[in-house]
Every structure is written in structure tokens, then in C-alpha cells.
């Protein structure tokens, strides 16, 4: 069964004919061509496919594309503005939060979602938020430092703006 699906992906409104049984991750990768979102475990156990739906972190491998009709979807490709990395992205780069890189898009999207609601997370809060994101290189310490660095950048730029 196919029907028209409308949603906003990385700021652009889209309308595509999508099958009822298409997962959001397959829609993003195969229909939108946004392969930054990764398929890791494929069953909600690893977090590599995490994207934002209306600002909240979601596992796109456990979400039907049609369930997101009308929502605002963001992927890792939508995080940079005019070629400039987001605070989370640049912090992962600077603090070596990425090793093989496969879990990184999911880590970045979950961190982004956390920092939008809490710009001063404690280490425990960061660990809790990222609890469903698995890094098989096990570079967790650097990942947590990256999120802390991103929080500092966000807070500094806020203060500068005020």
C-alpha cells in the first residue's frame, strides 16, 4: 500500500509516495538520499539511526515513515549552517569524539536533542541521554567530553548574544 507522505526534512518540505511498511531510516537513506543516518543493529539496540523528530531524538529504524507525517525531521546532514559545523559537530571533531565514525551521526543527534532542552547537563545526564547509543570502538569518555565541550560553546555563544 503506497500513499503520499508529507514532512519537512532538514528544513525542506517534501512530498513522496511511500509504502506503508517503509521505515523512517529507509525513507531517509533511500528516498531522500541522506545516508548520514546509519543502520547499525537494525532493531533499536544501538542508536546509530537516531534522528530528530520535532526536536526529540528518535530511533528511525523503529519508526514507520508514515507515523512521522507532518513532522519536522532533522538528520546529521542538516546540522551544519552555511558550511559551518554545529557546536556538537565541531566539538566531536575537536575532542576526538569520533573514532571509526559509524555511531557518530546517532551520537550527534542524541546529544543535539539533549542540549536543546538542557544546556548544562551533568555527566550523569549525558550518560543517561546517550545510554541507548552504543560505540563499538568504546570511545565513551571522549564522547562525553565532546558533549560537555558543545555545551560550553552553546552557553558561551548565548552569553555573547546577550
Amino acid at each position: 500500500m503506497n500513499s503520499v507522505l508529507q514532512m519537512t526534512v532538514n528544513g525542506r518540505p517534501r512530498a513522496d509516495v511511500v509504502a506503508d511498511n517503509m521505515l523512517l531510516v529507509d525513507y531517509l537513506r533511500e528516498v531522500c538520499g541522506l545516508t548520514g543516518t546509519k543502520i547499525g543493529c537494525d532493531g533499536g539496540e544501538c542508536g546509530a539511526c537516531t534522528i530528530l523528530a520535532d526536536g526529540g531524538a528518535r530511533l528511525s529504524c523503529l519508526t514507520l515513515a508514515h507515523s512521522c507525517a507532518g513532522q519536522v525531521i532533522e538528520t546529521v546532514e542538516g546540522q551544519a549552517t552555511r558550511g559551518e559545523l554545529s557546536a556538537v559537530q565541531s566539538s566531536f571533531h575537536e575532542k576526538l569524539g569520533s573514532q571509526c565514525g559509524y555511531c557518530t551521526p546517532g551520537m550527534i543527534m542524541t546529544s543535539e536533542s539533549l542540549l536543546r532542552t538542557n544546556t548544562n547537563p551533568t555527566e550523569d545526564e549525558i550518560r543517561e541521554a546517550l545510554g541507548g547509543n552504543i560505540c563499538r570502538c568504546t570511545g565513551y569518555i571522549k564522547i562525553i567530553e565532546s558533549v560537555q565541550a558543545a555545551a560550553e560553546i552553546i552557553n558561551a555563544s548565548r552569553e555573547a548574544a546577550e
Partner: peptide
């Protein structure tokens, strides 16, 4: 239950 991203939905 599970991880924070699961609990959100």
C-alpha cells in the same frame, strides 16, 4: 525501561 530514546515513544 530500555534507553531514553525508546522511552520517548
Amino acid at each position: 525501561v530500555a534507553g531514553a530514546t525508546h522511552r520517548a515513544v
